[in-house]
Write a protein that binds this DNA or RNA. Sequence first.
DNA 1: TTTGATGCATAAAAAAATTATGTATATTTG
DNA 2: CAAATATACATAATTTTTTTATGCATCAAA
Lengths: 114, 114
Amino acid sequence: MKKQQQLYKGSLNTIIMKLLEQHGKMYGYEITQKVKEITQGEMNITEGALYPALHKMEADGFLDVEMDRVDGRIRKYYKLTESGVKETVSRMEELENFIRNMQTIVNPNLKLDF
Amino acid sequence: MKKQQQLYKGSLNTIIMKLLEQHGKMYGYEITQKVKEITQGEMNITEGALYPALHKMEADGFLDVEMDRVDGRIRKYYKLTESGVKETVSRMEELENFIRNMQTIVNPNLKLDF
DNA sequence: TTTGATGCATAAAAAAATTATGTATATTTG
DNA sequence: CAAATATACATAATTTTTTTATGCATCAAA
């Protein structure tokens, strides 16, 4: 029973958007499985967080939805809108800045390339 | 007017603990200034987040406090307890795992060294 | 046939910030 | 010297974002 890596709050939307950018369109359950697979089970996207996040991004105009019936089950495929693509770029910059700043804080002696 | 880098929620305690580990003891205001200095103003620790965080970590036994009066003003110096040192190690591992997982997600083609 | 996987969803609660104040002293500036 | 800025602490209300706990339904496997 491996220890669960906790998500830093605020990173979920960035993860979702980046996966959609890479895969074109995905449905909710697929996103949870993809994250689990990529991180080898270390990160777990809970459905209680995922679905409200998807709905909010759709309401904000970042995502478009398309319903599909597969094997008698409903799937809601999400993909980035034009606005969503821009937002993804912006969120990626934020993530990179965060990581860079955190690395500077925890490792002040590290010399960075410019 | 440079854009403010927002903190991912959950990272504040890690930042505080790491700074205390590096500097031995610090007071609240000093922490806000140090973060601002290190990140060249990109990250801003708000007092509304800082002081409750310090109080909670003290209550949890991770920090010890020492009061000082300097130039007529009160300073509350915080330092890590033994338990706090262990917690710092643990939080650093979490941060490194988070960064590694996020980098794997956003850059799946990157080959990592082992 | 019942358990686990697939697939969606929402509500209540907790966690962790932001924003807005408040108090007080010291220093700098016009 | 008055006013603004910096130093230094603190708390309350609100917002954001998550976890935890449910709920419903279909399909595959044991």
